[in-house]
Amino acid sequence: MQRYQHQITEKSVSERYRKGAIMQNSSEETKKKLLQAKHRMEAVQARDRKKERSARTRRLILEGAELEKIVPEVKGMTTDELRQFLLLHLQKHF
């Protein structure tokens, strides 16, 4: 009878070890999945930022093209000259 109890004890220790290994493996898998989810989220955010930048760039180009159509003189102006030109002419209307 004593031998039988000893086998149960060994089995229990073995089972506990396996359960611990499974839990550790599960913990590592969970950490890996969390890291993957974080990287997917960062990739989605990066794509969103790129889309926003592209949309802004397109809008600025289209608005600049419209300005050049209406006031062709702005093509030869520097950025500072354009700013002064717009401030001067827009202050009259506001």
Rank of each mutant, 00 (worst) to 15 (best):
Y4I: 15
I70T: 15
R49I: 00
Q91E: 15
Y4P: 00
L35H: 09
T79D: 11
L87S: 05
V44C: 03
E42T: 08
D48A: 04
Q36I: 14
K33Q: 13
A46S: 11
A21K: 09
L60W: 02
A37K: 06
L60R: 07
K50T: 07
K32Q: 11
I70D: 06
L90R: 09
R83E: 02
R53L: 13
R3A: 08
R47M: 04
E52W: 01
E29Y: 03
K51L: 13
E15V: 07
A55Q: 10
I8M: 09
S54L: 08
A65Q: 11
A21Y: 02
S54A: 10
K92W: 02
K33P: 01
H93M: 15
A43K: 08
D80T: 13
E29Q: 13
E73V: 15
E29S: 06
E15R: 07
L88I: 14
K50S: 03
T78Y: 09
L35K: 11
F85V: 02
L35N: 10
K69G: 07
L62R: 13
S27Q: 06
K19R: 07
Q45R: 14
I22R: 04
L88Q: 11
L35A: 14
E52G: 00
Y17Q: 12
S14G: 10
T78P: 04
G20K: 07
R3T: 12
S27M: 04
T57F: 06
A37N: 08
Y17I: 13
T57H: 04
N25S: 12
E28W: 00
S14D: 10
S12E: 09
Q91K: 15
Q45I: 05
F85E: 00
S54Q: 14
V71T: 07
R83K: 06
G20Y: 03
Q2M: 07
Q36C: 03
S26K: 05
I8L: 14
T9H: 10
K38D: 08
I8W: 06
R53D: 09
I22Q: 03
H6L: 15
Y17N: 14
S27T: 05
A65T: 13
A65I: 11
S26R: 09
